[in-house]
Simulated scan of single mutants.
Amino acid sequence: MDDTSDTRQLLSNRIEQKQQAVRSYLGRERPKRNKLSNISVVGSALAAMLTAGPAFGGTGFTQALQGVFSLGDDSIVWRVLCLGAVLLSVAAALATNFANSHSIADRVSAAETANAQLEGLRDTLSFGRIDTDEALKLYQQYVAQVAFVDEVPAR
């Protein structure tokens, strides 16, 4: 491959386009990853809290809740606590499994790494610290790590 400034600029433009696509991907997927992670953690913690009261306080705890909410039967307290724990546990399990089945965390990490690598490559290329053939090989390696990232459509 020739090492002219036009070729370097062409490769630099391709690097920038791929970085735009990766940044766009990260802008969509980071919030999704964070939301699923938060649902999983908070759901699990709240489910544990709903079961901790009766586990540690026993009938005294449920009778106290029965009195606070003016319920006729303490079995209603047990049912509500159990139903809440089940619903929160299911939400946490679904969020965890959805995130894992789509490898969201792994893909976001790969995209973040590739974005940093492409940034470094673009800088190195623009300062002439690397020949074009070597830069192209590195570009192909970095892009292969994020094959799941679609190109950003031209505007």
Rank of each mutant, 00 (worst) to 15 (best):
2 D>M: 04
3 D>K: 01
6 D>P: 03
7 T>F: 03
8 R>K: 15
9 Q>A: 15
11 L>G: 14
12 S>F: 12
12 S>L: 14
13 N>F: 07
13 N>R: 15
14 R>K: 15
15 I>F: 10
16 E>A: 14
17 Q>C: 01
18 K>L: 02
19 Q>Y: 03
21 A>I: 01
21 A>L: 06
21 A>V: 08
22 V>K: 08
23 R>V: 09
24 S>D: 14
25 Y>W: 06
28 R>C: 07
29 E>G: 07
31 P>G: 14
33 R>Y: 06
37 S>F: 05
37 S>Q: 07
38 N>S: 14
38 N>P: 00
38 N>Y: 12
40 S>L: 04
42 V>K: 08
43 G>R: 10
46 L>I: 07
46 L>P: 02
52 A>T: 08
52 A>G: 05
53 G>C: 10
53 G>P: 09
53 G>V: 06
61 F>N: 05
61 F>D: 08
62 T>R: 04
63 Q>G: 02
64 A>K: 11
65 L>F: 02
65 L>Y: 02
66 Q>L: 05
68 V>D: 07
70 S>G: 02
70 S>M: 06
71 L>S: 01
71 L>C: 00
72 G>W: 00
72 G>F: 00
75 S>T: 10
76 I>T: 04
77 V>G: 12
77 V>W: 14
78 W>I: 05
78 W>M: 03
79 R>V: 02
83 L>A: 12
84 G>A: 12
84 G>C: 06
86 V>H: 03
87 L>R: 15
87 L>H: 14
91 A>N: 11
92 A>D: 11
93 A>S: 13
93 A>H: 13
93 A>Q: 06
96 T>V: 09
97 N>C: 05
100 N>F: 07
102 H>Y: 09
103 S>T: 07
104 I>L: 14
106 D>I: 00
107 R>L: 04
108 V>P: 05
110 A>E: 08
110 A>F: 00
110 A>D: 09
113 T>K: 15
114 A>F: 01
118 L>T: 03
121 L>Q: 14
122 R>L: 13
122 R>F: 06
125 L>F: 06
126 S>H: 11
127 F>G: 09
127 F>D: 15
128 G>L: 07
128 G>M: 08
133 D>A: 05
136 L>M: 14
137 K>T: 12
138 L>E: 11
139 Y>G: 12
141 Q>T: 15
142 Y>L: 13
142 Y>P: 05
143 V>M: 06
145 Q>N: 09
146 V>E: 05
147 A>I: 01
148 F>W: 10
149 V>C: 03
152 V>H: 04
153 P>L: 08
154 A>S: 13
